[in-house]
């Protein structure tokens, strides 16, 4: 082997090592989390279970509802605000037409202070003129694994064409509906999703971001029917629960309904004719 050949082989080997090293540097093996908890927001640093004062919760339909994501406890773990708004608008669209719901205000997270507690919630409720606030907690974890094929990233070309990075995005959202005045939890409902996929090394960042967004979207889609079912159960419970009282506010919606009694009385009138016609 002459010197020239030795140098050439050495250069190739070095280049391969360097390039493989670069590819290795890009590998993703970490987890990504996003979370915001209503409990941490409303009961910060609580050492004991919160004591709820017994009392009557008064609801004045049509109820004015605020809806917001619970603020993230740690900076940098929150969902982008634009995405939050889109998700909350989706929830709002499913409940806005209910006759006993007066209005639904989407409250931007910037108005909620981390660990602000009920004092902050009351301020926000006054500002947005709402009686009830639905706080959406969220917790998303993205696991990343490198598949066997990721070995081919060292070829550089492989980093562009081989889908060697696998991700698994697990999302949980939970809407807890609070009456602000009485600080009482009226009802809650969860929504979950799991998104799995894989991507090439160079597309990983974009693909995983889209997967996280899709995870929230799917979790909210799961939340909406659960929330509707819980709302119905709450309405049934209200009829027997003496701690919740429904009072008409000034300016109420009214329905003229004769009810079953009206039908029976009208039937009574017609029956009289039938009886009279008998010989």
């Amino acid at each position: 082997m002459n010197i020239t050949a030795l140098l050439r082989n050495s250069a190739i080997a070095c280049a391969l090592l360097v390039l493989a090293g670069c590819a290795s540097l890009w590998h993703h093996t970490d987890t990504h989390t996003q979370s915001g908890s209503a409990v941490e927001y409303l009961f910060p640093d609580a050492k004991q279970a919160p004591q709820m004062a017994p009392g009557v919760t008064t609801l004045r339909p049509p109820v004015k509802v605020g809806i917001a994501f619970a603020p993230a406890a740690q900076w940098g773990t929150a969902i982008p605000e634009q995405q939050k708004t889109l998700l909350l608008e989706k929830v709002k669209g499913n409940f806005a037409s209910l006759p006993y719901v007066g209005k639904i205000e989407v409250i931007p997270s910037s108005y909620l202070r981390a660990k602000g507690g009920f004092a902050n919630l009351e301020q926000v409720a006054r500002m947005f003129d709402v009686d009830v606030v639905a706080l959406v907690s969220y917790d998303q974890v993205q696991f990343v694994d490198n598949g066997v094929l990721s070995m081919l990233y060292w070829t550089i070309v492989g980093a562009y064409v081989i889908q060697g990075d696998r991700y698994d995005v697990q999302t949980m959202v939970d809407a807890a509906v609070f009456d602000v005045a009485s600080k009482k939890l009226l009802f809650r409902a969860p929504g979950t999703s799991r998104i799995k996929g894989s991507s090439t090394l160079v597309n990983y960042s974009e693909a995983s971001r889209e997967a996280r967004a899709a995870g929230f979207d799917a979790a909210v889609n799961d939340l909406v029917p659960n929330l509707k079912a819980e709302l119905e159960r709450f309405r049934e419970r209200m009829k027997t629960d003496s701690s919740v009282q429904v009072v008409n506010r000034a300016g109420y919606s009214g329905g003229g309904s004769v009810g079953l009694a009206g039908v029976l009385l009208a039937l009574g009138l017609v029956t009289l004719i039938g009886l009279r016609r008998r010989p």
């Binding site: 339909p61 006759p99 919606s253 009214g254 329905g255 309904s257 009810g259």
Partner: peptide, 21 residues
């Protein structure tokens, strides 16, 4: 008012309409 009115929760019975009727 009883639940026989058929009105959803949050909608008051407008009995005044019946009196006028």
């Amino acid at each position: 008012a009883t639940d026989l009115s058929g009105l959803p929760t949050g909608i008051a019975l407008a009995w005044q309409a019946h009196a006028v009727g």
